[in-house]
C-alpha cells in the first residue's frame, strides 16, 4: 500500500499510465451503465399500453349528405370525413402535380373518391384547420384554411399555400361495408 502511494506521489512513468487506464476504463463502464439506466426513464414517457390500445374507431357514414363534413375523434385527434361533391372530386383530380408543394395524386388519398377521410391537423404546427362547418373560411383552394399561420389546403386536403410542409395525413382505415368505416 505504502509502496504504491509513494510511486503515485512521485508520478513515475509506467505506473501512472496503468492507473490512468484503470480510471478511464472505470469511468467508461460507469458512463455506459448510467446511459443504459436512463432508457427505462426515457421510455416511460412514450405512449403507454392503454393509450396504444385505444386505437380504432368505427364510423357510420350513411347519414352524411353529399357536400357535408363531420369530424370524429381517433386517438385524440380529429379526423375529417367529407362526402365530396363531383365538382370537388374533379378539381382535386385536375390539379397539376407541378403546382403541389407535397405532390400526391387525389386517387392515392382516397379509397372511394366521394369519401375523403383524413387527419384534420395542420402539418405546420398542429392547429385544426377551418372548413368543416358551413360558413367557415375554406381558403384559396376551396378546401380548408388554417388560421394559425395561414395554410391553404385544397379539396383533397393537400397543402397548396402557406408554411405547412405536407398534405394532411390519411389515417389507416377500411370500409367494413358500403357505408361503415373502421379507422385504425
Amino acid at each position: 500500500m505504502t509502496d504504491t502511494a509513494t510511486t503515485a506521489a512521485q508520478a513515475s512513468g509506467p505506473d501512472e499510465t496503468r492507473r490512468d487506464f484503470l480510471l478511464m476504463a472505470t469511468s467508461a463502464v460507469g458512463a455506459v451503465g448510467v446511459a443504459l439506466a436512463c432508457w427505462p426513464f426515457i421510455d416511460s414517457m412514450n405512449p403507454s399500453a392503454d393509450v396504444l390500445a385505444l386505437s380504432s374507431t368505427g364510423v357510420d357514414l350513411s347519414a352524411i349528405e353529399e357536400g357535408q363534413s363531420i369530424t370524429v375523434v381517433w386517438r385524440g385527434k380529429p379526423v375529417f370525413i367529407r362526402h365530396r361533391t363531383p365538382e370537388e372530386i374533379e378539381t382535386a383530380g385536375a390539379a397539376p402535380m407541378d403546382d403541389l408543394i407535397d405532390p400526391q395524386a387525389d386517387t392515392d388519398r382516397v379509397l372511394k373518391p366521394e369519401w375523403l377521410i383524413m387527419i384534420g391537423i395542420c402539418t405546420h404546427l398542429g392547429c385544426i384547420p377551418l372548413g368543416q362547418k358551413v360558413g367557415d373560411p375554406r381558403g384559396d383552394f376551396d378546401g380548408w384554411f388554417c388560421p394559425c399561420h395561414g395554410s391553404h389546403y385544397d379539396t383533397s386536403g393537400r397543402i397548396r399555400k402557406g408554411p405547412a410542409p405536407r398534405n394532411m395525413a390519411i389515417p389507416p382505415y377500411e370500409f367494413t361495408d358500403e357505408t361503415t368505416i373502421k379507422i385504425g
Binding site: I42, M45, N46, P47, S48, V51, R75, G76, K77
Partner: peptide
Amino acid sequence: WLWGGFSVDNP
C-alpha cells in the same frame, strides 16, 4: 414522446 400519446392529452 413529448406528448406520451398521439396528441396533447392527459399524459
